[in-house]
Write a protein that binds this DNA or RNA. Structure first.
Lengths: 232, 232
DNA sequence: CAGATAAATGAACATTGTTCAAGTAAAAAA
DNA sequence: TTTTTTACTTGAACAATGTTCATTTATCTG
């Protein structure tokens, strides 16, 4: 029910039992229900998310998802139009979850009176931690975006944009670099760099190098950019 | 015939005509040839490359490729085992081509007596130019790697590794950072950052921002890292 | 209760990757 | 030359998958 899903590590087990029962009950004399959309959508999203976590984006198949959610294949298409849309909804929640984490990381850093450099460091750490914790679901975002041939819908782009704006906010607090365009380029450069470091590290779905090295590389970039912005 | 393929912008037209004729000739009374493998492989690779360029990695379908190459579907599997292997061969050539470009960019920069910072700038520029010029084929590399669930073969990893080592070479010439591990982390951090900037820019197969901005962002990072390494 | 409505169903279709028994041209053997 | 063997090509057939839609069914409305 919360806007960010991402497993919600606590209630996971409780929900799992509940979900597993729903499809098993009865002999499927269940055609023609009404007004069940909201709950059903959630069931499908949960089942699809679990599939992605277990077997990557390739693991998201219409028929198994339908079975796990206790509905028919056709209903998935009633609810989402097609599998791409279902994936987009899941990815959107992933973006939301990451957004909340980054927002609160920045907020906490500021309340703790940290420097701009430290704020950026905390943002990067939060990102690395997120990707490490939700590797499959995050790789699904990237893989999906790569495979699309036309532009995604606006609401999807907006969620991606929102992530950049957090970094812009953090960068805005630096003494130098005040003009809007420079600030945007600095924010994009820094965010894309951290993103690049993290995704090269988890390329092919595996950690290709020790996490400590990844963190070192992030520090190199953040320190370099911070030092450059501080004009020192 | 050259080890790097990538369209070879010159002979393109000549080859195109030649290729188009080969399948069209005769009434396909061509079962049971012998010792034709090498040429056939090239035909298939060319046809597949063109398909990727035109319609992305999704555009690589067995049947159309077979038809364009003038052979049957089965022969593709005789030659490559499966489509993934065909893709890997194409991507391998892409890596080779980029490697050559980067190597010669570095060499030229050194011969021109450029500073370490300028050398890195030239490497980054060469990379950006390559991706801009061969967008589809490069995105195919990234998309393919993302979709794989198990580790690629060693020869494939080696080609990827080779690209990092060029940056390591460039970074090795900086006055500071001499220890091997620090140098490797610096190289990886910088290369992954540039990679991140470029790929975020071409995300979803489109240039999401003006190329000038992308270049500005690269300069921000290279200058920041260079400044940091120069200890200034 | 009867009709209208909204939604769920799952068989059927289209598209793909992949396999493999059968066929065929070239080389080798006779 | 004729026959046998070899090596490769072929394309029909299969399995897995995304997607559609006529039919069925539950619920709502009067």
């Amino acid at each position: 029910m919360a806007p960010n899903e991402i497993i919600s590590p606590a209630d996971k087990m409780a929900l799992r039992a509940k979900q597993a029962d729903i499809p098993a009950s009865g002999e499927s004399k269940t055609a023609g229900r009404k007004r069940f959309e909201p709950e059903m959508r959630e069931h499908v999203i949960k089942a699809a998310t679990r599939a992605i976590e277990a077997k990557g984006l390739e693991g998201l198949k219409a028929r198994p998802i339908a079975q796990r959610a206790g509905i028919s294949v056709g209903s998935i298409y009633n609810l989402f139009g097609d599998l791409d849309e279902l994936t987009r909804v899941i990815n959107g929640r992933t973006y939301d979850a990451l957004y909340e984490i980054e927002r609160s990381a920045l907020e906490q850093a500021r309340e703790a009176g940290k420097t701009s450099r430290e704020q950026m460091m905390d943002l990067a750490a939060a990102y690395l931690d997120f990707v490490e914790t939700h590797q499959a679901i995050w790789l699904a975002c990237l893989a999906f975006n790569r495979n699309q041939t036309d532009l995604p819908p606006q609401w999807y782009l907006d969620k991606e944009q929102a992530l950049f704006r957090i970094i812009e906010d953090a960068i805005a607090t630096f003494p130098g670099a005040q003009e809007l365009e420079a600030r945007q380029n600095n924010a994009r450069a820094l965010w894309a760099s951290i993103h690049g470091i993290v995704t090269v590290a988890v390329a092919d779905g595996f950690l290709m190098q020790p996490i400590a090295n990844v963190w070192t590389q992030i520090q190199i970039i953040v320190n370099a950019v911070a030092g450059s912005l501080e004009g020192e």
